[in-house]
Design a binder for these strands. Structure first.
Lengths: 96, 96
DNA sequence: CGCCATTTTACCGATAAGGATAAGATGGCT
DNA sequence: AGCCATCTTATCCTTATCGGTAAAATGGCG
């Protein structure tokens, strides 16, 4: 029951990224020039095979003119989480 | 006015992370055990000296029980961006 | 079918992430 | 002042990102 880091995180981010790029009708080559990130690297990220760094995601988000949040999080999930509240009330016991 | 990749992105993320950790009164050591990320690595991220990978941020967010968005984006900025709309209407000309 | 754009995969080299450990800072406390 | 917890910085090591290039899939379209 040890909640392990959502194995499809990278796949989901990749799917969203590809959808956004498709919306703006950009090729990997074009997005590569806009971001300074090579097309092969973008391909790996879109297919969920690469664990991109934060600044890499930021460059992509900037080029696509969307907030980073759009790449990183499922909009539906963002609503369910309520707002921003730290969740509170769960004790770590003496595990620490 | 050419918005260049926000040079203080890492610093901002670090500040938010440290604030969240302080709220839950966790030491770097404790967060390190919760995330599997070493305390020195966490320190570098919090001080904006390290460009963490997406899965690293995800592990931290999970341990702190907040959505990744909370670490990555300023809540004020999230409001100003409107919602999620791709911004549209800006032509790349024949730059591509 | 062949061509061509787009994407994927595979290599290379440089740079950086991340764990481990240990050594300095920093700060609070008696 | 000393002690102690916490945080920072430094070093070494393994592994991964990322750009570049080139080669292989993939997919239209005539």
């Amino acid at each position: 029951m040890t909640m392990e880091i959502e194995p499809n995180l990278l796949t989901d981010v990749g799917r969203r990224l590809r959808a956004l790029r498709a919306d703006q009708e950009l090729t990997l080559e074009q997005l590569a020039r806009l971001t300074g990130i090579s097309a092969p690297a973008l391909s790996l990220i879109e297919t969920g095979k690469r664990d991109a760094r934060l600044t890499t995601l930021a460059k992509i988000a900037a080029a696509l003119r969307v907030p980073i949040r759009t790449l990183v999080e499922d909009p539906a999930d963002a609503a369910s989480t309520g707002g921003d509240a730290p969740a509170e009330g769960y004790d770590l016991g003496d595990y620490l």
